[in-house]
Amino acid sequence: MATTSIEISPTAYAKILSHILKYQHYTVNGLLIGNQNGDPLLIQDVYPLFHTGHGLSPMLEIALIQLDTTFSSEQTIIGYYHAFENCKQQSPDVHCERIMDKISEHFKQAILLLVDNHALTKIKEEGSKLPFHIFSRQDSSLRLASKAQIFSNESCISSQEVIEKKLYESCVDFDDHLEDTRLDWSNSKITELIVSKFS
């Protein structure tokens, strides 16, 4: 059965936004971490992956192995987010499908959050929709999950936080980490800031 309701935590949402804003001119992607058996499916955290070399597999495989071996059986990779450099591109390409194939080997109901670049201009407005198109795998191909809905309780506050406090400048993805291992691609700094905001 396809997932119909998805919740995204403020931390996860803030990290996705930070990644997109830091590398506005590039195609960026990352992995969604959550609880396998959650209902609604909850995206707890996010690991930003790349802003260069979209379509090449070696470092992607390393990233997947690193996360797969780090998380316990319950918490796992539940999907993938992707933002194209090109505003007009609104559907996933072959490379996205391949990554989703790989993820769904472990988690059948894996989802793809494709960032709607146009909707990004309105994220600061109260009550605006989250800027994602949700895709899921049906009959071994990626389809737009038109019935699926994504919601977050505090998305508006976390987007303000990211933009106004320039949180995105401190965002680190796996690409950055490979260039300089001192950088922490789990972005615990952003987690701390957002969590302290909501507690």
Binding site: I62, Q66, T69, R182, D184, S186, S188
Partner: peptide, 14 residues
């Protein structure tokens, strides 16, 4: 040498 503890742990797992 980088002093990144999370990184070290993830590397060990890998």
């Amino acid at each position: 040498n980088s002093g990144n503890e999370t990184g070290c742990r993830m590397l060990e797992n890998t």
